[in-house]
Design a protein around this nucleic acid. Structure first.
Lengths: 76, 76
DNA sequence: GAAAAATTGGGTAATTAGGGTT
DNA sequence: CGTGTCCTAATTACCCAATTTT
């Protein structure tokens, strides 16, 4: 299955998360999430007021891709 | 009342969104959208009863322009 | 005509942004 | 270099009752 160039299928109402929610998921300070956004490490959407929102799907994928499982242990 | 959810769009008519719908798109409180309108940050149309409606195209454009993609991952 | 859901308004907490520092 | 904390200003969220929309 190939993922062709994805133009902008975008909003069909993508669920968005607040900085605080993302921070809770990663167990970091909200400020850190802000830094990730500033550094372009994570996509973000700004409200007209300047606050950031994050795509839940992107955050979930990030969590998954950064997760490592322990290898199964052999019972002896 | 026989009018379905959506009246037939006539020419020139633009699809309008309610404060609640716009709020969902930005993951914000409906009242916040109202403030944007009062502050002139977003165009609005008033119903005879005083409720606000927003142009979908304007909202979509706003969303797009305020969106930042994550930079390509530097796989290390 | 009646009822449920949404929006309006105002007022007060809670988050967030941004810079500078550790 | 990345993260956590302190600070101030700004933005946003939740409370209420009254009105409008469906």
């Amino acid at each position: 299955m190939v993922t062709p160039t994805q133009p902008a299928p975008t909003d069909g109402a993508e669920h968005l998360l607040t900085p605080g929610e993302v921070a809770s998921l990663f167990r970091v300070d909200p400020k850190t999430v802000t830094r990730w956004a500033s550094a372009g490490r994570i996509g973000s959407i700004r409200t007209p007021g300047g606050h950031r929102r994050f795509r839940e799907s992107e955050v979930r994928n990030m969590l998954a891709s950064l997760t490592s499982e322990a290898l199964p242990q052999t019972t002896r």
